[in-house]
Computed example of a mutant assay.
Amino acid sequence: MGRVSQAEAKVNRERVVAAASRLFREDGVVKVGIADVMKSIGLTQGGFYKQFASKDALVDEATAKAFADNLHDLVALDHEAGGHQAAWQSLLESYFSVEHRDNPGTGCPAAGFAGDIAREPEHRETYARGVQELAGWIAPGDAGLAAYATLVGGILLARATAGTPLSEQILQAAHAAVARAADGGQPETG
């Protein structure tokens, strides 16, 4: 098998980052090895080190990609839903759903990476930037941070209690709390 072109290498790198982003959110950074990521997209582990300096470099890039993709989707939702208020309501409905609870690999990056980032401080700057940008989409300043913290906390607790009646109660209670705090589609600022 011959060498891959620069274009193929770029596509492969993007595939690796996307797969890692999903797998890390699903199973955790510690549990998912380089071999797991590469196998999931049909590439060999040896090719990894031609593209990345280390697993830490991949974790940082996968975290940044997850947040950037999520923000891109939210900005697009503003346009599709006909404005921020409608987009915010749509986000609340999908965020506190059983589907989101049960699919962390494609869900909220703040929730998906929270446990690992708390234990691996070298990735906190990337994670913090992502949290700040997504909270800013919700609302400016502390209002956006408070609403985002409620979203993330609610989904983490719902995931941790999945399979019990409490899980769906948490989803409903967190949804209601954030919706009550909303004023014109955005959390209250004061």
Score class of each variant (00 low, 15 high):
residue 128 A to M: 15
residue 65 K to R: 14
residue 28 G to C: 09
residue 68 A to H: 02
residue 52 F to P: 14
residue 34 I to Y: 00
residue 78 D to T: 15
residue 71 L to S: 05
residue 66 A to H: 09
residue 55 K to C: 07
residue 119 R to N: 13
residue 121 P to G: 12
residue 54 S to A: 13
residue 131 V to T: 10
residue 47 G to D: 02
residue 44 T to Q: 08
residue 108 C to W: 01
residue 76 A to F: 00
residue 59 V to P: 08
residue 46 G to F: 02
residue 42 G to N: 06
residue 53 A to I: 07
residue 137 W to V: 10
residue 139 A to C: 13
residue 60 D to A: 09
residue 107 G to N: 00
residue 102 D to W: 01
residue 84 H to S: 15
residue 48 F to R: 10
residue 79 H to N: 07
residue 106 T to Q: 04
residue 89 Q to G: 10
residue 57 A to W: 05
residue 32 V to S: 05
residue 129 R to Q: 12
residue 115 G to T: 14
residue 51 Q to L: 14
residue 112 G to W: 00
residue 100 H to Y: 00
residue 103 N to T: 13
residue 59 V to D: 08
residue 83 G to D: 07
residue 102 D to Y: 00
residue 48 F to L: 13
residue 29 V to E: 02
residue 96 F to T: 07
residue 45 Q to L: 02
residue 53 A to L: 03
residue 53 A to H: 07
residue 126 T to D: 08
residue 106 T to I: 13
residue 82 G to P: 09
residue 111 A to I: 05
residue 97 S to K: 06
residue 103 N to P: 09
residue 103 N to F: 00
residue 68 A to K: 04
residue 93 E to W: 07
residue 80 E to C: 04
residue 30 V to T: 11
residue 90 S to L: 14
residue 95 Y to M: 01
residue 91 L to E: 09
residue 136 G to A: 11
residue 93 E to L: 12
residue 56 D to K: 09
residue 68 A to Y: 04
residue 35 A to I: 06
residue 48 F to H: 08
residue 76 A to S: 08
residue 67 F to I: 10
residue 123 H to T: 12
residue 48 F to C: 12
residue 73 D to H: 12
residue 127 Y to W: 15
residue 36 D to T: 04
residue 48 F to D: 05
residue 67 F to W: 03
residue 117 I to G: 10
residue 120 E to D: 12
residue 68 A to I: 01
residue 132 Q to F: 02
residue 132 Q to V: 07
residue 30 V to C: 01
residue 80 E to V: 15
residue 75 V to W: 00
residue 59 V to C: 06
residue 39 K to H: 11
residue 36 D to S: 10
residue 87 A to M: 11
residue 122 E to C: 02
residue 136 G to R: 06
residue 80 E to F: 01
residue 74 L to N: 10
residue 136 G to F: 01
residue 30 V to D: 15
residue 30 V to M: 11
residue 82 G to N: 12
residue 96 F to C: 09
residue 138 I to N: 05
residue 87 A to T: 08
residue 55 K to R: 15
residue 76 A to K: 10
residue 65 K to S: 12
residue 43 L to T: 02
residue 31 K to I: 11
residue 39 K to M: 04
residue 134 L to F: 00
residue 31 K to M: 05
residue 122 E to G: 13
residue 109 P to V: 07
residue 41 I to F: 08
residue 41 I to L: 14
residue 63 T to W: 03
